[in-house]
Design a protein around this nucleic acid. Sequence first.
DNA 1: AGGGCCATGTAAGTCGTTACATGATTGT
DNA 2: ACAATCATGTAACGACTTACATGGCCCT
Lengths: 181, 181
Amino acid sequence: MALRYALLGLLSKEPSTGYELAQRFKETMTHFWTAHHTQIYRELGKMEKEELVSSKIIHQEEYPDKKIYSIESKGYEDLIQWLARDTVGQPKLKDEQLMRVSLFHLISSKEAITYLNKTKKLHTDGLAFMERWKRLNFPDEKVPKQELGEYLTLEYGMRYMKNWIEWCDWAIEVLEKFDEE
Amino acid sequence: MALRYALLGLLSKEPSTGYELAQRFKETMTHFWTAHHTQIYRELGKMEKEELVSSKIIHQEEYPDKKIYSIESKGYEDLIQWLARDTVGQPKLKDEQLMRVSLFHLISSKEAITYLNKTKKLHTDGLAFMERWKRLNFPDEKVPKQELGEYLTLEYGMRYMKNWIEWCDWAIEVLEKFDEE
DNA sequence: AGGGCCATGTAAGTCGTTACATGATTGT
DNA sequence: ACAATCATGTAACGACTTACATGGCCCT
């Protein structure tokens, strides 16, 4: 159900097409969620049937037609209710890279270090992307209420990446020492 | 496919029943993965059909019968192959708590702070659990090769939790300042 | 008396991924 | 020439969750 509320949350700021939502998703939510465009279109269709959102088709000459979705009062109420219901459960992680790390007893330290360096690079890239985004969107650290959530989660994302990178350095050191013995 | 390799990884250390695997999973992998017992039983069944694992039924008088699974050579080969294939992709997060944080523009700062304190508690509990586990399993920081992956991922888990807690404190401060204006 | 541990699973439903399909325009 | 952007979707499959089912033992 989280995807549904992510979409309603985005639509609470402004009406968008499915395509635009997929983009906004990528820009503002990669720090804590991912979704394919196929999933987004499906969920929008379902929500329209349930009358949480409505759509209008816009004719375009040069480009394909587009379908702009808007949030309806019922959708807004659902969203607020979901936020209020405190079903805050234990944090659940899913990290395939760490899955591989947990199997390091099966490979050599050298291979393990190579692997860690690769994932470190990916997290460094991720951090760079977020820092660029922050410079563009919050240059003077001034945050309007509308963007409060984005500001807070973006900071989380950056800390998450830094934490990974630091852990990687630590793990590589451990492996190097391990090899000496 | 990751669950499959998690199970093969656990079985590479010692044969276990589905029930035991679910427990070992909870103890040693909560830091980066979760799985329900129903999922584990199903995956074991599939792997048995594909001859990656084999099982033996043990009769018990007082307790229900149990089915002990062991890894087969084909399963071991698959596991090593998966580890070697470097399909290391961009890190993908899914965090429902942050999903709610991203919607903070819809509620009051007071409600937001209450929410953050609740999730902070959960992460503090998580950290305490991991620290206890570390004291029990790695009391003198001595790590046999067999437990290398567990040691590295456990450290990651603890850093992850600390990072969350620190971010929470930061976010609460931001919200308090936000309210004053 | 009620909950937790032991131990295994089925069934139904939702969520997520991958492959396929269409087709014009703009940039390298 | 080729890839990317705009724009929308269907179909099939795989992963994950939730509810249900069984049944005895042990502890408080």
